[in-house]
Amino acid sequence: MSDPASQSRQKTIAIVEDDANQRQHYAEALRSRGYEVLEYADRKSAISGFQQTLPDLAILDIMLGDEVGGGFELCRFLKDRDAQFPIIFLTSRGDELDKIYGLQLGAWDYQTKPVSLEFLITRIQSLFQIKANTASGRPSNNTRHIGDISIDEASMLVQWKKTPVNLTPTEFDILRAILNTPDGVSIEDLVNATRQGVVEDNTINTHILHIRKKFKQIDAGFSCIKTRYGFGYSWVC
């Protein structure tokens, strides 16, 4: 992997995690990559810290001490301050309802523990890249066009019929995997494509449903992602 620190030296990342051991592991890993890390153990201290300095990205646990939804509260707080603020939920609450709720609140990503530190850092880099691209508003030169869809892997931008589709990094990974395999991609391959340790089959299905919904918001007749029962998905357009 190229040295990410050179790209992210000035970036500040806040970690809000009530478990001191885990918080320390994440902080050390991020600092080793050159990021500045702010550590908070609960919602109150995090809010007081955010009021002084807003970081570039926040990694939030949902359950903070006695506060069952403390992470959600923080997410709302940050989104109120900056609607485009990148937030990653990193939590042991892996059920789908929490995921849907977290993403609805505006989180950019939702990762279930345990998560590989390498994967987490890659994900953070992707988010910073997306943020940079969104800020510049320009796609890079290596954009691929497959029918009505355009995909720019470097800037993680997707357009359907020239309208941008706002996908999360995981959704982008899944769509890219489907597009890269014309014969169809199996669920197992999609699980690998998301680069997460353990993903249930149904989590992939849920992501596919979200991707389809986002495309249908642009084009109600969208039906290019076909389900191949017992195998996976394929792009047929």
Binding site: G94, D95, E96, L97, I100, G197, E200
Partner: peptide, 24 residues
């Protein structure tokens, strides 16, 4: 072995929340 432990937790999570997930 770590993956096995994760699988156990994920299976339990899936089972525990299957009804809620279905209702969505």
């Amino acid at each position: 072995a770590s993956r096995q432990l994760e699988l156990i937790v994920h299976s339990l999570t899936e089972a525990a929340h299957i009804d809620d997930a279905l209702s969505q």
